[in-house]
């Protein structure tokens, strides 16, 4: 098992590096200049979009993993789901922070402020806070079984509160562009046209997905080793 995983890692690492270099090169040299609806040239700050969007999607994926593996842990009590949940949560918090950071930098350049209280931003912040709280739950309970069970409960409840807070803030208008689908009040800018942009976006999405998978794999392994050490220690205490 562990031999196979090290093989995956051997392939994953160079792939990660290559795709990242490729992404940076594409963002700066391949992607065309962007124009807004009125046909005006957008600022170079738009380039951060190719990093901001994939990171956001990856952070959603990781919280989805936390949610699903929490449910599976409660129903099967199998340790590996708990390990997956904690690894995904930690990596997810990292990515959620990066979403807020890149978003704020872009907002400063495009809107003039670092932060605006509007739906998308607030929900991202709530998401970040909920999973910080999730990690706090884990840390504050010593017994590993109990900590796994209780944090799985929090993982489920926390995930559900996020679409709700999105709904609750949707009562306001949003200034954040909507990339996919329409809002309640018609299109709000955004929208993607041109193959070169789509290609750059796909490459960047693949790069961040690989990065996420890589970190998650390493984190999961650490969690398994921790568990082994814990078992060995308790065996020693028994004898």
């Amino acid at each position: 098992m562990s031999y196979m995983k090290s093989n995956i890692q051997r392939i994953l690492l160079p792939l990660m590096l290559l795709s990242m270099i490729g992404l940076i090169a594409m963002v700066f040299y391949y992607s065309p200049s962007m124009y807004d609806d009125a046909g005006q040239l957008l600022d170079k700050s738009f380039n951060i979009f190719f990093i901001h969007l994939p990171i956001a999607i990856v952070s959603y994926i990781s919280f989805m993993i936390v949610f699903i593996s929490s449910i599976l842990y409660l129903s099967t009590s199998c340790k590996k789901w708990d390990h997956l949940a904690v690894s995904a949560a930690e990596v997810g918090v990292l990515f959620a922070f990066l979403v807020l950071a890149t978003g704020s930098i872009w907002a400063r350049a495009a809107w003039g402020w670092y932060w605006v209280w509007e739906p998308r931003l607030t929900t991202s912040l709530v998401l970040f806070l909920v999973y910080i709280a999730y990690l706090t739950v884990r840390q504050s309970i010593d017994e590993s079984d109990k900590s796994a069970r209780l944090s799985a409960i929090f993982g489920i409840v926390g995930f559900i509160s996020v679409p709700l807070s999105f709904l609750s803030i949707r009562l306001w208008r949003s200034v954040h562009p909507v990339m996919f689908g329409d809002t309640f009040y018609g299109t709000a800018g955004g929208g993607l046209e041109g193959t070169s942009i789509i290609i750059t976006l796909l490459i960047s999405f693949a790069a961040f997905l690989l990065l996420f998978a890589g970190i998650l794999l390493y984190r999961y392994e650490i969690e398994q080793m921790k568990d082994e050490i814990y078992d060995l220690k308790s065996d020693l205490e028994m004898t």
Partner: peptide
């Protein structure tokens, strides 16, 4: 109640989750 820090932890967990109540 199962955690080391006990009741101190509650506000940290509670406030992010009740944002959807507080806003409306």
């Amino acid at each position: 109640i199962n955690s080391r820090s006990g009741e101190l932890l509650l506000p940290v967990l509670l406030f992010p989750l009740i944002i959807p109540v507080i806003i409306p």
